[in-house]
Nucleic acid binder design. Structure first.
Lengths: 241, 241
DNA sequence: TGCATGAATTGATATATATCAATAATGGAA
DNA sequence: TTCCATTATTGATATATATCAATTCATGCA
């Protein structure tokens, strides 16, 4: 679980990581930055590689950095009392992770963990603060990003508190296909326990619902790869609760 | 449930409402505004009164306005399928309500309803946008407010998904006493149904837990007024789940 | 190649919570 | 006041989901 730094300060990685990373995402919040500002952002940032399973940032530690996921898949989880966890959402390539204590108490309110191998950048929070005060468009983009992420999270949690298990599993499967992987047979790389933790239910219960869906011909499952055969059925189950 | 506008554009209310409203809250996000900027904010804003029970803003309608609660108590609720609702939090005097679609899709993602009589101000979202681009300190304050509100909401929902009913009721009672009313015997003005909707449980179940707490001498209840007699016990129950 | 360790699956059972139904209490209107 | 319509309360029962225990399956490792 220990994080290893492969490249400390990446001087030459700018062209193959930083600027590119901030270029190709057409809806990147960094698009509005000037060359100077990008330079500032990039200057002291560190490029770090994590292996699958490693903890990128731990809940309740200081939130002095913002993380930018360049490659790979990570999960965001809230750790409760005992060993209860709730996986709030997944984070795919080219996502920036704000929120969670940034601007407030400088404390991480959730843990970020690598699902697959993850390449990411750590950016000093101070840089973000400075850019907010320099560039109002950037502040605007950040507010937008923040609100969007939070609305998604909220809708998700409302679903979890209001729906029965089949509805929650449907929502999860649709989320994975449409929001995260965007292909149809998709390999989640997530254990049954992790999938269960995304729906706030027991692993056993999750497996049972999955089996029902398989028997009903709605999905087919092969290890961690899921194939949605009847998306309409999932939509229906999702709506019915 | 129809909203009535008592005062359309309040010219002379500036001194008894707007500037004061934005003055006395020592941690108001409007503190950082210049006189000019405050003037801009206040110019076309409307001061509206709602009776208890009225809907201030309805989920899924256009979010072209930001609401500022000057006096009274309101509740924020997410409406799900059927008649399921989840009350996310309460809003007391001198709170500004951002988030929920602002900056993104301009659609309200939750309903706001008056619990007691409520005096509030409607401010055009455009004004907020303009102030964000003019005054970076304001943008910063907005980000802060946003993040704080969202973290509270998140912690709350994580508790709801991970705790048993007694733990959830404890959390609710502590929240009401410490965050909302800040006195000890406090009159919630909320029905049992509404209290239950804050904990994502049935009214009947909520009443049963409340009774257990009464019998255990932890609280005493008189109508909608609750008196917490043993706060430590509540803390303990909250932690145990 | 086989063993060992953990993950996935299935079944039997327990329990937290919801549902349904009946009764009591409360508060407003005539 | 008295009546009516909500709201609150209590009890009996149903059910969704968790828990516990037992297999099966996969996978790396010696």
């Amino acid at each position: 679980m220990e994080s290893r730094k492969l490249e400390e300060v990446c001087d030459k990685c700018k062209e193959n990581c930083c600027s590119r990373c901030f270029d190709d995402g057409e809806d990147s919040i960094f698009n509005c930055l000037t060359t100077d500002e990008l330079e500032l952002l990039v200057k002291e940032k560190r490029h770090i590689h994590f292996k699958a399973g490693e903890t990128i940032l731990k809940q309740n530690t200081s939130a002095s950095h913002v993380v930018c996921v360049k490659r790979g898949l990570a999960k965001i989880l809230a750790e409760g009392n005992g060993d209860k966890k709730l996986i709030l959402r997944l984070v795919a390539s080219h996502s920036i992770l704000t929120g969670g204590g940034l601007f407030i108490d400088e404390i991480r309110h959730f843990t970020i963990q690598a699902v697959t191998a993850v390449d990411c950048c750590f950016i000093d929070s101070d840089k973000i603060y400075e850019l907010v005060s320099r560039n109002s468009q950037f502040a605007f983009e950040l507010l937008k990003l923040n609100n969007r992420q939070n609305m998604e999270m909220l809708n998700n949690l409302v679903g979890i508190t209001q729906k029965y298990m089949p509805g929650r599993v449907s929502d999860l499967l649709l989320y994975l296909k449409n929001k995260i992987f965007q292909t149809n047979p998709f390999d989640t790389r997530l254990s049954r326990q992790e999938l269960a933790d995304m729906t706030s239910m027991t692993m056993e219960s999750f497996i049972r619902i999955l089996k029902e869906f398989k028997l009903a011909g709605i999905i087919s499952v092969e290890g961690t790869t899921i194939h949605i055969l009847d998306e309409e059925a999932l939509n229906l189950i999702s709506r019915k609760g």
